[in-house]
Design a protein around this nucleic acid. Structure first.
Lengths: 257, 257
DNA sequence: CGTTTTCTTGAGATCAGTCAATGGCTGTGG
DNA sequence: CCACAGCCATTGACTGATCTCAAGAAAACG
């Protein structure tokens, strides 16, 4: 599914038509000149006009991060929000005694940084080589005042995140490890599908420890679950960081909820 | 802390200055005439002008519910949002096999119904005799277009909910039962304090089973935790539905996060 | 006042965690 | 090119926290 860079309203770019969406990479590189005005927009958003995107561009900056790079630290003043262009991020909370919780992963097209707090509530770290678009919170707020659609989209996005967080609560509270694993893999697959990459192959851009800390398990249990699912013929694990879903219905039947 | 009903911008009413906030009950009853214009407003909101509240009133309706009454069913079309005036609500998700998850409780002043889904994602049920204010989603949207502050407040509220949901994820994933219980009791106390009722006495408007399903535990474990906390002298349980916090610092030290 | 529901307590079972060892992959340096 | 170190994933054996099951006590309800 080839994509073209454009500054005119484009079709909604998966996983949903989020504001300030940077276009996905293409052969020429992740960010090319606008087909409309030849300017290299940083901010492309399906709900914004050409003019509005120029306004956003003035406030946005592009960043390229190496594996493990830290965008934000838990407790730091919350000055920016981000959209992932390429790669992946993890949102991590670390307790004083070392207990770790991965609140979520941000994949290309995802929006990171929505919060009601004046400080970041998680560490935000790059999982691999990751490219993203950064906006100042204040700039965002100003633009929200000027372009009501932007604010509306942000609100919708926050609500979708809320739904997703509550789903995860159900998983953490009431599912056993196998079910959580099945649920997690299916969610990843669904996100890839919405991003235009349907099919049984699913990338796992994060190490096992991150999956474990996301699902409230240990690394060992994650590993055992993958082995079990493989044994049941539901998935294959051709590479450590890639799985193939062999039986979608079978996985679905595991995640009872 | 006596409160007076008013239709002019009032001080933020805890737990936060949310839109469409109905005033707390006073001796004269939960909803009295507006001191400004003698109209009995249904919708009082700290960010709205008198005129705007009249507009909201036209869209709002008051409801009184008995214990166990159902406001919304998981899967029903999402047509309304609610604010709790008096009493309490629970948001429940029920899996096909009977597993149950209480996503949260709504106390007076709380806003219920934010979601990105066209259908309700939880059953919403009254815990005791509960009074609330109901708004149509469409009306809400129209008002949001007319009064940008309203939309902004809704957005902030969604972000706060999001933070809170992620906190709960950490609790469910990485805390043991005692820690979850301590965390839960302290959160309840904090909400009561923000609602103008500080102090060691905390009402538990929900049965043990709801606490258990909220914390991902069993009823038995909840009961045992309360006994343990009592044994440590951190709390007292004078009545089944009321606890007294004897040692805030001690409880705090338990919820490592 | 009896019935029903809810809460508490106890004893045993089980599932996931802990600890420990092995194996594979990667990058470095000889 | 190979040897080694470090990291990560996997597997196994064991432990123990929490659930399950069961009974009794207390509270709510009619």
């Amino acid at each position: 599914m080839a994509r073209t860079l454009s500054c005119v309203p484009v079709m909604a770019w998966p996983p949903f038509d989020s504001p300030c969406l940077t276009p996905p990479p293409d052969e020429a590189g992740p960010l090319g000149p606008c087909a409309h005005c030849q300017v290299r927009h940083l901010a492309v958003c399906s709900v914004l006009t050409h003019e509005e995107m120029h306004a956003l561009d003035a406030e946005a900056s592009s960043q390229l991060l190496g594996p493990g790079a830290v965008l934000a630290r838990q407790g730091d003043p919350r000055r920016h929000v981000f959209t992932v262009v390429r790669g992946a991020l993890r949102m991590v909370r670390l307790a004083a005694d070392g207990r770790r919780q991965v609140a979520g992963f941000a994949l290309p097209g995802d929006f990171v940084g929505l919060s009601g707090s004046p400080t970041y509530r998680h560490d935000v770290e790059a999982l691999g080589e990751t490219e993203l678009c950064r906006f100042g919170i204040d700039a965002m707020r100003r633009l929200g005042e000027r372009y009501p659609q932007l604010r509306e989209k942000l609100f919708e996005r926050a609500c979708v995140e809320l739904d997703s967080a509550r789903d995860q609560m159900m998983a953490l509270a009431r599912m056993n490890p196998i079910e959580r694993m099945a649920d997690f893999l299916l969610k990843l697959a669904a996100r890839e599908a919405r991003a235009g990459n349907p099919g049984p192959m699913v990338a796992l851009p994060m190490p096992r420890a991150d999956i474990a800390d996301h699902l409230g398990l240990t690394v060992e249990t994650v590993s055992r679950c993958l082995t079990t699912l493989r044994g049941k013929g539901l998935i294959a694990v051709p590479e450590t960081y890639r799985i193939e879903i062999l039986d979608f219905a079978g996985l679905e039947s595991l995640r009872a909820a």
